[in-house]
Nucleic acid binder design. Structure first.
Length: 591
RNA sequence: GGGGUCGUAGUUAAGUCGGUUAUAACGCCGGCCUGUCACGCCGGAGGCCGUGGGUUCGAGUCCCAUCGACCCCGCCA
């Protein structure tokens, strides 16, 4: 470190000074968080990454420093030499970690001045995200954001500690790689030396990690950036970080137990939270039936009940028609939900419309029967049976959605979370981990008009379902598993296909032409023929994991330099135009 | 690709039915102040009302387009 004041070096961080340092001389360096200039006495809160401490400029203790201190403004960078002074009892500031002490300045050097910042860095004033992102380096001075970034560093470090101890080997894989069909849109990088050819940035190191298993590394991991050129969300960035892993000679339970150990280690080391594996498991089917989605938030109950049989027999046309035409009628039962106002109930209909539902039907359960416009379509016996199935008691509210199965699940799945938030059912301190297993291997895509891989095309089918690949594709179960935490998918993986014949069969089932398979995956299929061990792996979204650990609302709060929803960086102004020369060199033309 | 919210001093917001000189708080600048800690008191400066067009005698306000940020659906193996 460079030397400043009279040849002295920084002795410690501002935020770390405590009563035990009283009487000692310190040299501090940091930013002016706030100044209180009383004319005679001047107080400065000096800030560094560990916190702030009060500096006192007293004309009797340091006349030159006091004179200079009048010129100090917010965010100036200072070096201060002085004595740590224990504050008199009536001047202790209990809201500061350093509140029992202060530093009496004897010498001051202004290391740098600062323009007035475009927003106040007090962490309390709401500032538009636009501005925060443009001046990200200033936003990053704020305590909350620094805490998140520091937590992220610790999680990455503890992940490495754990995995190295478990015999995993970190291997770097290429960023400049090959574009492959299936999956997300690729970010492309033009090749200069081979005009008209492109690299793709990896959506994940999937093929490389499997090839490392072929190579015999046995256990691989990497904390690695991945790139997907798709539309963004509050929890999605175009470049994001995965904890990527692969293991040989293992089955589902081996991976699950390693990950349960890894999560326990990370949460204990970084948050002091003790987890209690094994985590509960749900099949995909159960998750959809009970929670409406494959990433259920299991911090609260409020489960979905299937009432297709009962409600389908009611005189209510919408219900009977839905049941008759292959749709389903499902419900959420809110105990004591009768308090919902008519206005709130109407708003629920709007809430589910993005998921394709035409509305939410509701009844209030009273001591003697139902109230609400739907009540007249149900007789006493039907009500009784529905009460039994849903557990509804007087005072409850029953919310029905009738539609195609996928619409009903999506609607009620979202509504369930919304209601839980509204009713305060979610304990923010709970950590609800759940494994989701037995995903379908294929999903039919209406837009593509064909079956697509639910997970990815290298996922192994359940052995007993292999015959179904030819006959009943939709029913083939995958040896895939996701780890869900508090309603967020934080990781997912699978046992891979290690037999070239099965891999070819899957490519074929996905509608890939033989020549296409050879061009895109030929090298990989060939590799599988040189002695591939049974293997499988998993990848975690580090950003999402940190979000939950930090209690962050947006993925931007856990990434130092994030991009906007339009994938631009407001600070550096990327992406931007490039010169004609650059384009010519790459043989590219803007159309 | 679709739906929604927002854009007014440096910042955060108010701005009525379209009508005089566009308000306030914080911040900033100057002055006073020796125990403040969101210091206090006095004074002052500060506006492309996102941008472009239209309607009107007159637009921050109404209409159209556009740019940007955010949220959701589709999409994200």
């Amino acid at each position: 470190m460079s030397e400043f004041i009279t040849g002295k070096k920084r002795t410690q961080y501002c935020g770390n000074i405590r009563a035990e340092h009283a009487g000692s001389e310190v040299v501090l360096m940091g930013w002016v968080h706030r100044r209180r200039d009383l004319g005679g006495l001047i107080f400065i809160d000096l800030r560094d990454r560990e916190g702030t401490v009060q500096i006192v400029f007293d004309p009797e203790k340091g006349p030159e420093a006091h004179t200079l201190a009048h010129t100090i403004r917010s965010e100036f960078v200072l070096a201060v030499r002085g004595q740590v002074n224990r504050r008199p009892a009536d001047m202790v500031n209990p809201s500061l970690n350093t509140g029992e002490v202060e530093v009496i300045a004897e010498e001051l050097e202004i290391l740098n001045e600062a323009n007035t910042t475009p927003f106040v860095l007090d962490g309390e004033t709401e500032v538009s995200e636009n501005l925060l992102l443009k001046y990200r380096y200033l936003d990053l001075r704020r305590r909350d954001l620094q805490r998140n970034i520091i937590l992220r560093s610790r999680v990455a470090a503890e992940t490495r500690t754990f995995l190295q101890r478990e015999g995993f080997i970190e291997v770097e894989t290429p960023f400049l790689t090959k574009s492959t069909p299936e999956g997300a849109r690729d970010y492309l990088v033009p090749s200069r030396v081979t005009p008209g050819y492109f690299y793709a940035l990896p959506q994940s190191p999937q093929l490389f990690k499997q090839l490392l298993m072929v190579s015999g590394f046995d256990r691989y991991y990497q904390i690695v950036k991945c790139f997907r050129d798709e539309d963004l969300r509050a929890d999605r960035q175009p470049e994001f970080t995965q904890i990527d892993m692969e293991m040989s000679f293992i089955a589902e339970d081996d991976i699950i137990s390693v990950i349960e150990g890894m999560m326990s280690h990370i949460f204990e080391a970084c948050l002091g939270r003790t987890l209690t594996p094994p985590f509960p498991r749900l099949t995909y089917r159960e998750a959809i039936e009970r929670y409406g989605r494959d990433n259920p938030d299991t911090r609260f109950a409020l489960e979905i009940t299937d009432l297709t049989d009962m409600a389908g027999q009611s005189a209510f046309r919408v219900f009977s028609e839905t049941a008759r035409t292959g749709g389903v009628i499902k419900a959420l039962t809110v105990p004591d939900g009768s308090a919902f106002s008519r206005k709130e109930l109407d708003a629920l209909g709007e809430f589910v419309s993005p998921y394709g539902a035409k509305g939410v039907a509701w009844v209030r359960v009273g001591e003697d029967g139902w109230t609400g416009s739907l009540a007249k379509f149900f007789n006493q016996e039907m009500m009784q049976r529905i009460h039994e199935k849903t557990g509804a008691r007087p005072g409850a509210l029953i919310l029905f959605v009738a539609d195609a199965p996928s619409v009903v699940s999506a609607s009620l799945g979202a509504l369930r979370v919304r209601l839980a938030e509204r009713l305060g059912l979610i304990d923010p301190d709970t950590l609800a981990f759940t494994w989701i297993t037995e995903f379908p291997l294929f999903e039919y895509s209406e837009t593509e008009g064909r079956y697509m891989a639910t997970h990815h095309p290298f996922t192994s089918p359940a052995a007993e379902d292999i015959p179904l690949i030819e006959t009943d594709r939709g029913r083939v179960r995958a040896r895939a598993y996701d780890l869900v935490l508090n309603g967020s998918e934080i990781g997912g993986g699978s046992i891979r296909i290690h037999r070239p014949d099965v891999q070819s069969m899957i490519f074929k089932a996905l509608g890939l032409r033989e020549d296409e398979v050879q061009t895109k995956f030929g090298f990989f299929l060939e590799a599988l023929q040189y002695g591939t061990p049974p293997h499988g792996g998993i990848a975690f979204g580090l950003d999402r994991l940190i979000m939950i650990m930090a209690g962050a609302e947006s993925i931007r709060d856990v990434i130092a330099f994030p991009k906007t929803l339009k994938a631009s960086c407001l600070m550096s102004d990327a992406p931007s135009e490039v010169s004609a020369d650059q384009l010519r060199e790459l043989s590219l033309k803007i159309i």
